[in-house]
């Protein structure tokens, strides 16, 4: 009796997962969130049971705390958000074009590759202290730290993507009379965009980590020092800390959704249904 029912339930779930309709996608989103919160709840219970202390408050408590903190948390969210977005914009607008040029132009590649190979593997955190010492601990440095980390990420993947351009696409526009700039505009950029957007997603996580490090360094006022500072300042209030961490997750989610939307617009051709003709 129980077996066919479980089977049917499984079939229902897999059907919904394959469902491409808008409602279907919303349902999946809610389902996966429920799974995440469920695991969180279990972890919180286990920790409470084993340690006897509520180090990890359950999701309901964290969300209630977010509501209670309201404007204070939002101010910090906003500070972190603009720092991260600004850093991403700076890194994208410099790392992407430079990576494309290095990937496409052989002489630039010869010149810059050794530099990239030397600098890229160094964890950028290693520069934090130097930057703080030279430029102080203000906003510009915090943004710069995040931007530098993302810059190298995007530079390296743009360079790789630019090397993988299908030569037939280039031949095709050249024979139609394209200039060098037009070759970039009509082939190199659109062909590399999907993989750049993928590494931009990776960069959001990376940037978040660096932002946290930058924000917990130096002064940490819970007022408007950003989510990192807020989390650090809440060290002895685990519920408040959980609310801060949840806010950081929310920031990441918002950025991922924005990148998804951008991808659907600028890479429209990848999302057309393959209608038979």
């Amino acid at each position: 009796m129980a077996k066919p029912r479980a089977k049917r339930a499984l079939a229902y779930v897999t059907d919904r997962v394959r469902d491409r309709s808008f409602a279907g996608r919303i349902a999946i989103y809610i389902g996966s969130l429920a799974l995440l919160f469920g695991l969180w709840e279990v972890a919180s219970l286990v920790i409470l049971k084993v340690k006897g202390v509520e180090y990890l408050p359950n999701p309901v408590k964290a969300i209630t705390e977010m509501q209670r903190l309201g404007p204070l948390l939002f101010r910090n969210f906003w500070t972190s958000a603009w720092r991260l977005v600004l850093a991403i914009l700076i890194a994208f607008s410099t790392g992407y074009p430079l990576g494309l040029l290095i990937g496409q132009e052989r002489w630039l590649d010869r010149f810059f590759s050794p530099i990239i190979y030397i600098v890229y593997p160094i964890p950028q955190v290693a520069f934090i202290l130097l930057l703080f010492l030279v430029f102080g601990i203000g906003n510009p440095v915090k943004v710069a730290i995040v931007a530098i980390a993302i810059f190298f990420q995007l530079l390296v993947s743009a360079r790789g993507a630019a090397k993988e351009i299908d030569p037939e696409h280039v031949t095709s526009v050249l024979s139609a009379g394209a200039s060098r700039f037009q070759t970039y505009w009509h082939v190199v950029i659109p062909e590399t965009l999907p993989s750049i957007l993928t590494s931009l997603r990776v960069s959001v996580g990376l940037g978040m980590a660096f932002l946290y490090i930058a924000e917990i360094s130096g002064s940490v006022s819970p007022g408007r020092g950003g989510l990192g500072a807020f989390i650090k300042a809440s060290s002895f209030n685990t519920t408040q800390q959980a609310a801060g961490i949840l806010a950081m997750a929310l920031l990441g989610l918002v950025l991922y959704v924005i990148i998804d939307i951008i991808e659907r617009v600028v890479c429209r051709w990848r999302y057309t249904a393959r209608r038979s003709t």
Partner: peptide, 25 residues
Amino acid sequence: LILQNAGLLPWKTVWQNANLSLLLG
């Protein structure tokens, strides 16, 4: 010039692909 795999750009529509020279000015 007609290329081996037609040399179409996947990110351009049929119209844009057919009128590549026009797009290029």
